[in-house]
């Protein structure tokens, strides 16, 4: 309990404002949002040659239709590429954040990003493995009888792009970064709806994944450029 004269409202306001300004300054000093966006964009673009030239496996062909069989087709390298690429990306991002913050005299809470990211990768990879082995036609999932067309959303949730979107939301929470949060919402909407901006390639083509990866990678790249312009990463913090 204080015995000093009661502080005036102006003093209280100044004290509150100065602490909030300091909190915001520390948050800004810790932010390097452009870096994970560039790394995840690079991982998305790098997937293009890997998926294109990978051996493809065919599973769970349904009953023959008038035009032939409908089957699940998946890239063998893609199954391995995404979990490895995302885990390496998350570790790379965390090392960058730690070193950058350390150079300024701060320690960040980026460890939560790596932990959450790895959890999401494990879940998404397991779901991805499960979805390619789902039978075509009507499927019973936890008592819900779902038709093939309604499984599209499950396939998209089991995609690496969904893991990237969720990890960006975790990063937005760690960084207290509202703009990154909104960007992650837009990205997840584009992944889940999905929005192709009218660019579609035939399902039977070896390039049928291309529009999806180009759109997702470009969004990450442009968002990275936007954050890079506002956060000025070329100014490495000096003491």
């Amino acid at each position: 309990m204080t015995t000093d004269p009661a502080p005036s409202g102006k003093d209280a306001r100044q004290l509150l404002a100065s602490s909030q300004e300091l909190i915001e300054r520390v948050r800004q000093n810790q932010r390097a949002t452009w870096f994970p966006l560039f790394v995840l964009s690079a991982a998305t673009f790098l997937a293009i040659p890997i998926l294109r030239f990978s051996q493809r496996n065919v599973t769970n062909c349904g009953a023959p239709t008038g035009q032939g069989f409908v089957c699940h087709v998946y890239s063998v390298w893609g199954v391995w590429y995404w979990p490895i690429a995302l885990v390496v990306a998350y570790f790379g991002i965390s090392i960058f954040y730690i070193r950058r913050a350390h150079a300024q005299g701060l320690e960040t809470r980026i460890r939560n990003f790596v932990i959450a990211g790895i959890h999401v990768v494990v879940i998404v990879t397991a779901m991805g493995y499960w979805t390619v082995h789902l039978p075509l036609g009507q499927v019973n999932i936890l008592g819900l009888h779902m038709q093939e067309h309604s499984l599209g959303l499950i396939h998209r949730i089991a995609a690496p792009a969904f893991a990237i979107g969720v990890s960006l939301m975790v990063l937005a929470w760690i960084e207290h970064n509202r703009r990154l949060f909104y960007m992650a919402i837009v990205y997840l909407a584009i992944v889940l709806i999905p929005i192709s901006f009218g660019w579609n390639v035939s399902q039977s083509s070896n390039w049928n994944f291309l529009p999806r990866l180009i759109i997702q990678g470009t969004i990450l790249l442009f968002a990275g450029i936007g954050f890079a312009i506002t956060q000025r990463p070329l100014r490495w913090p000096t003491k």
Binding site: L15, L22, V26, R27, G105, L106, T108, K239
Partner: peptide, 22 residues
Amino acid sequence: LGILAIAHEARRVEFGYLRTNL
């Protein structure tokens, strides 16, 4: 209050950072 506010936002904060920012 400034020291506590800064330390709250980072896991740890170095003396030099506090000196400069305060």
